[in-house]
Computed example of a mutant assay.
Amino acid sequence: MAAEGTARRVTKRRLRTRADLLDAAFTVFAAKGFGRVSIEEVCEAAGYSRGAFYSNFATLDELFFALYRERAELIAEQVAGALALDGPVLDVPAAVDRVTEVLLLDLDWLLVKTDFLAHAARDPAVARTLLEHRARLRRAIADRLARARWRSGPPAALGGVDGAAHAVVAAYDGVTVQLLLDQDVERARTWLKQLLTALLTDGGATAVRAE
C-alpha cells in the first residue's frame, strides 16, 4: 500500500511538472517565437532544472508539439461547447457570438499557432498534426450544423454543412491575420461576427430549429 501511495504521489508530481513546463513554454514561445527559445529559458520560466525537462520531453520540438496539441484540443472543445443548444432553437448570431469569443480571446495563442503553421509548412509530419486539428475543428462545427433544421436549408453557395464548416475556419484564418498585425481584438471580433453570420444565414435568416 505504501508503495502504491508513493507511486501515485510521483505520478501526480510528474504531471504537475509537465503542466508547469507547458504553461511556461506557452508564455516564452508567445513572447519570443519558436526557434528563438532555449530549453534553459523554458526551465527558468517554469522554475525547474534541465533534468525535470528531460524527464518529460526529449526535445524542445516535442514540448512545442505537446503544447500545440493541448491548446488546439481545448479550442476544439470550446467551439463545440459554444455551438451546443440550450433549447429547441439555435439562434445563429448568438451562436456566432459565443464562437467568436472563444476563437479571438487569446493573442498569445494566435502567435504560437502561427509559429506552428510556419514550422508545419516545412515539415510534412508536423503538417499532418496541424491538418488533423483543423479537421477536428471543422467536424465539430459541421456536426453541430448538421443537427439543426434549417429554415431554407444550409447556405447553398457553401455546398452544405461541410462547406459551411470550411468557410467558418477560413474566415477565422483571414480575420486573425489582420488581428496579429493591428492587435485590435474588438474590431476583429466584430468583423468575424458579421462575416460568420452572413455566411451561415445567406445574409438573411437568423435562426435554425433543432431536430
Rank of each mutant, 00 (worst) to 15 (best):
A2S: 11
A2P: 08
A3G: 04
G5L: 14
A7Q: 12
A7E: 10
A7L: 15
R8P: 01
R9N: 12
T11A: 12
T11D: 06
K12L: 10
R13S: 10
R14Q: 15
L15N: 07
A19H: 10
L22H: 00
L22E: 08
A25C: 11
F26D: 13
F26S: 14
T27Q: 15
A30T: 07
K32L: 14
G33C: 14
G35R: 06
R36Q: 14
E40S: 15
E41T: 12
E41L: 13
E44W: 00
E44A: 14
Y48N: 05
R50N: 02
F53P: 01
S55L: 12
S55H: 06
N56L: 02
E62D: 13
L63I: 13
L63Y: 01
F65G: 04
F65Q: 10
F65M: 09
Y68H: 07
R69N: 01
R69V: 03
E70Q: 13
E70A: 12
E70H: 06
R71K: 13
Q78S: 09
V79Q: 02
V79E: 02
A80D: 05
L83C: 04
A84T: 11
L85V: 06
L85A: 10
D86F: 01
D86W: 00
D86E: 14
G87E: 11
P88I: 09
L90D: 00
V92D: 02
V92M: 08
D97E: 14
R98T: 03
V99S: 04
E101D: 10
L104A: 03
L105I: 03
D106A: 07
L110T: 02
D115C: 08
D115T: 05
F116H: 06
L117D: 05
A118H: 14
H119Y: 03
A120I: 04
A121R: 12
D123T: 07
D123I: 10
P124R: 08
P124H: 04
R128N: 02
L131M: 13
A135M: 08
R136S: 06
R138P: 01
R139Q: 09
A140Q: 11
A140W: 04
A140T: 02
A140N: 09
I141R: 04
I141T: 06
A142F: 11
R147Q: 10
R147P: 00
R149F: 00
P154A: 13
A156F: 03
A156T: 07
A157T: 07
G163W: 02
G163P: 03
A167P: 04
A170H: 09
A170S: 15
A170P: 07
G174M: 15
V177H: 03
V177P: 07
Q178D: 06
L179P: 01
L180N: 02
L180G: 13
D182W: 00
D182E: 10
D184A: 05
A188L: 05
R189N: 03
T190W: 02
L192K: 01
L192Y: 02
K193H: 04
A198C: 12
A198I: 14
A198H: 13
L200W: 03
G203R: 11
G204H: 13
T206R: 14
A207D: 08
R209M: 11
R209N: 08
A210T: 09
E211Q: 07
E211N: 09
